[in-house]
């Protein structure tokens, strides 16, 4: 596994509407393999729409999305891409373990996987509880645990750390980097800027376009700012052409 990695995701000239609303207008990007890439941008900028397109559940008008060398949404990818939706998509009327057992069976993953993901998401204490009776942060961790089943090669995580306390967030980011070190590619959307600083690469989105594609350090240097918050505001506020790096 030491060959130079192909990008995990290549998007070219992507047009997509969410509902009837045009969201992505000719978006292009590359997501390198085996890294944690952050996707940040204002609410409504199209992060979720882009992630849905990468996972292959979004109807797209035109353009190409290539994931792990295959067209997004192809059957081959269905056990190799893990997706955490923005709202926890798990069964509230099942226990945590029953949720995981079911999705494990659907993925055809090994039985020991359930214990592994419970451990990774620190859900051991609530494994027998009904998912609907958990706190918001616990429920979103169940949703994350489902995505980790079967050890997918690409993880697409839509705001996975919302509602979590700083200790848990730190633990999850350690987990993300551990997974990347093990060869998994991750795309993580977030609103929390101190999380953006922990990413290997950053994609800044606005109005359905990629505004910047850089490392956190590169972004700070290009904008002449001291933290990601300020860099983000500068890019959103007055769109500095020097900071714009065209993908491809």
């Amino acid at each position: 596994m030491d060959t130079p990695a192909e990008p995990a995701v290549i998007v070219a000239d992507l047009h997509a509407r969410r509902g009837t609303h045009p969201v992505l207008h000719g978006l292009g990007l590359r997501i390198p393999a085996r890294q944690v890439v952050g996707l940040i941008g204002p609410s409504g900028s199209g992060k979720t729409t882009l992630m849905r397109a990468i996972v292959g559940v979004q109807v797209v008008q035109s353009g190409t999305v290539t994931v792990l060398g295959r067209p997004a949404g192809s059957a081959w990818l269905r056990r190799r891409v893990g997706y955490v939706t923005q709202d926890a998509s798990v069964y509230d009327d099942l226990t945590v373990r029953q949720n995981l057992d079911y999705f494990r069976a659907v993925l055809g993953a090994g039985r020991s996987d359930v214990a592994r993901v419970i451990e990774q998401t620190d859900l051991g204490a609530s494994a027998r509880q009904l998912t609907g009776s958990l706190s918001g942060g616990q429920r979103s961790r169940v949703s994350l645990a489902v995505a980790l089943l079967g050890s997918p090669e690409l993880l697409v995580l839509d705001e996975p750390t919302v509602g979590l306390d700083p200790v848990l967030r730190r633990d999850l980011w350690t987990l993300f980097h551990g997974l990347a070190a093990g060869g998994t590619s991750l795309l993580v959307s977030s609103h929390v800027m101190d999380e953006a600083a922990r990413c290997d690469g950053l994609l800044l989105m606005r109005d359905g376009d990629i505004l910047a594609d850089d490392t956190p350090a590169g972004l700070l240097a290009a904008t002449g700012t001291a933290d990601i918050d300020a860099a983000f505001l500068r890019l959103i506020g007055d769109d500095d052409p020097d900071a714009r790096k065209e993908p491809r």
């Binding site: 269905r78 056990r79 939706t85 798990v90 069964y91 659907v106 993925l107 055809g108």
Partner: peptide, 13 residues
């Protein structure tokens, strides 16, 4: 409505 269908259909079901 809860998104579990979308999740299932992104899996090999």
């Amino acid at each position: 409505r809860t998104g579990t269908l979308e999740r299932l259909l992104s899996m090999p079901l």
